[in-house]
Simulated scan of single mutants.
Amino acid sequence: MPRPKEFDQELALDKAMELFWQQGYERTSIQDLVEQTGVHRGSLYDTFGDKNQFFLTCLDRFRQVPKYRLFSILEEEGSPKEVLSRFFEKVIDSALGNGTQRRGCFIANTAMELAAIDPGIASRVEAFNLDMESRFYQFLLKAQKDGKMKFHHTLRELSRFLVNTRNGLYVLGKTASDRQSLEDVVKVALSIL
């Protein structure tokens, strides 16, 4: 009879996700994961599979953990532009982090590092982006139905543009020398709405 798992799988996933997020997939070894999670190598393999499968599980976990999502801001009161401005201010805060460790977005980092070479990872990145697109679409649709905004582009086009703006802020935040660079991107993005 197999022994029951003697560790908290969600906690191990969260710790592994943080390590992958900080170091990237390629720079993270199985030994790094053992040390980060405190779980023996054999137990990690038995529970999560190889490093690639473990990483895919971490990507799935990221999509499910609400603390990594800022989209609840889109449900707040205010004009659509005010709400989007607050949303993107939080994205900028997150992108810039504490100024010394700008880790970016786990999904955006993964897209740049691995999506072009791993179909399993690419499908998860696409699913995350489609989820974001859907949230922006619903937000814009409500603004349109409430008569608060008229658009010169389709809602789908604008939703995709907002996804790209959000992802771009995280990428730019990894190297930008000042906050103003990111705020300028948001200013232009909001001007087309």
Rank of each mutant, 00 (worst) to 15 (best):
Ile107Phe: 11
Asp118Ile: 00
Ile107Cys: 11
Asp14Ile: 03
Pro66Met: 10
Gly99Tyr: 15
Glu157Gln: 12
Tyr25Pro: 02
Lys174Tyr: 04
Ser72Phe: 02
Leu155Phe: 01
Ser134Cys: 08
Tyr170Ala: 02
Arg102Pro: 04
Pro66Phe: 02
Asn167Gln: 10
Pro80Leu: 05
Glu133Asn: 06
Leu141Asp: 13
Asp32Thr: 05
Lys90Val: 07
Phe54Glu: 10
Phe136Tyr: 14
Leu33Tyr: 06
Ser72Tyr: 03
His40Asp: 11
Phe161His: 14
Ser191Gln: 13
Gln180Ala: 14
Glu183Trp: 01
Phe88Met: 06
Ser159Arg: 10
Leu84Gln: 02
Gln101His: 05
Arg103Asn: 09
Leu84Glu: 02
Val83Phe: 15
Ile121Lys: 03
Arg124Phe: 07
Thr37Met: 09
Ser134Ala: 10
Arg103Cys: 02
Val125Cys: 11
Lys142Pro: 01
Thr28Val: 08
Leu130His: 04
Thr28Leu: 10
His152Ala: 05
Gln180Val: 15
Leu158Val: 13
Arg156Gln: 14
Pro80Val: 03
Arg166Glu: 11
Asp178Leu: 00
Arg69Ala: 13
Thr28Ser: 11
Leu84Asn: 01
Glu76Arg: 05
Ala176Thr: 03
Ile117Trp: 15
Ala16Tyr: 03
Leu193Phe: 15
Thr165Glu: 04
Gly49Asn: 08
Phe62Glu: 13
Leu182Asp: 11
Asp50Val: 04
Gln64Val: 07
Ser177Val: 02
Gln101Pro: 00
Lys51Tyr: 06
Leu158Gly: 01
Leu33Arg: 13
Glu157Ile: 02
Glu126Lys: 13
Leu182Asn: 05
Ser94His: 10
Ser43Ile: 05
Lys81Trp: 01
Thr165Gln: 10
Ala189Ser: 12
Glu183Lys: 04
Asp184Pro: 00
Phe7Ser: 14
Glu76Pro: 02
Gln23Asn: 09
Arg179Asn: 08
Leu141Tyr: 15
Leu114Ser: 08
Phe54Thr: 15
Gly147Met: 13
Ala176Gln: 04
Asn109His: 02
Asp178Asn: 14
Gly104Thr: 05
Glu126Phe: 02
Thr100Ile: 08
Glu26His: 09
Val186Met: 01
Glu133Leu: 07
Ser85Asp: 13
Ile92Met: 08
Asn129Pro: 00
Leu155Lys: 15
Leu158Tyr: 11
Ala115Val: 03
Val188Glu: 05
Gln31Gly: 00
Phe71Met: 06
Val186His: 01
Phe62Ser: 12
Ile192Glu: 12
Arg27Gly: 08
Gln64Lys: 15
Gly99His: 14
Tyr68Glu: 04
Glu75Gln: 14
Ser29Pro: 08
Asp46Leu: 11
Asp8Val: 07
Leu44Ser: 06
Phe48Glu: 06
His40Tyr: 08
Gln31Tyr: 12
Phe161Ile: 08
Asn52Phe: 12
Asp50His: 07
Gly78Pro: 12
Lys174Ser: 02
Val163Gly: 06
Val163Ser: 07
Asp8His: 11
Ser79Arg: 15
Leu56His: 14
